[in-house]
Amino acid sequence: MRRLTPFLGLFVFIAAWDLAVRLTGAPLVPSPWEAFRGIGELTARGLLVKYVVASLFRVTWGYLLALVFAVPFGIAVGMSPRAQATINPLLQVLRPISPLAWIPIAILWFGVGDFSAVFLIFLASFFPLAVTAMHAVHDVDPVHLRAGENFGMSRGELIAHVVLPAIVPQLIVGMRIALGIAWLVVVAAEMIAVSSGLGFLIVDARNAGNRYDLVVAGMVMIGVIGIVLDLAMRRLEKLDFVRWGYVEG
């Protein structure tokens, strides 16, 4: 019975959705079945796979690029109080600029297409990752740094053998949050700036003939992929050499 309760929740949700559509008789809002058929139709037309791949492609590249740049940057800034005093205020102003506000500039620099989207995802992921790495460096236990120094490590060795492993648990949490934001941003970017991907699917389905069944089908796909990405990141938190960083339980 306990194993079934989550499905009960899902069942209640779908039933309530169906009932609401029937009762209000809203002509535009699709029922669960219509949305489901919508997914079938998209699959048959080959659009589903194409759009999912397009969205994932952009997220993967933007996110990985951000990771490669942001983590060393965050560590370097975090290790030097002076660098931090210099750069942090700038970072704090740039960070709250919604990555989507860069859309006009992205289009100006990279044109309408994948490069623009990758650039926006990069921005969306870079700031949270850099700030996480920077703060995580501050939280490294001084006892561990001193132990490293005591064993005669150079600064580089200290970063590789002490700082990096010490920040990984916090970094993974930051990576999960950043990936969530990246996924949010790719959908928005595709609604505004490109003509493929799941975000585009949603706007296009609405603009071209009020196909709200496809709109909701697109939303379901966005949700499902979002869950898969989040679960994948959560698995990282179970790795043996990072589990110390989380409260057990």
């Binding site: 006892v143 001193r146 132990a147 120094e149 005591n150 492993p165 010490a166 990984v168």
Partner: peptide, 20 residues
């Protein structure tokens, strides 16, 4: 003048590296 691996400092147990 600075720490040296010929003389090692042992902290309370929290000095072990939890990731190793």
């Amino acid at each position: 003048t600075r720490p040296d691996p010929r003389r090692i400092f042992v902290f309370q147990e929290r000095g072990v590296f939890p990731w190793l």
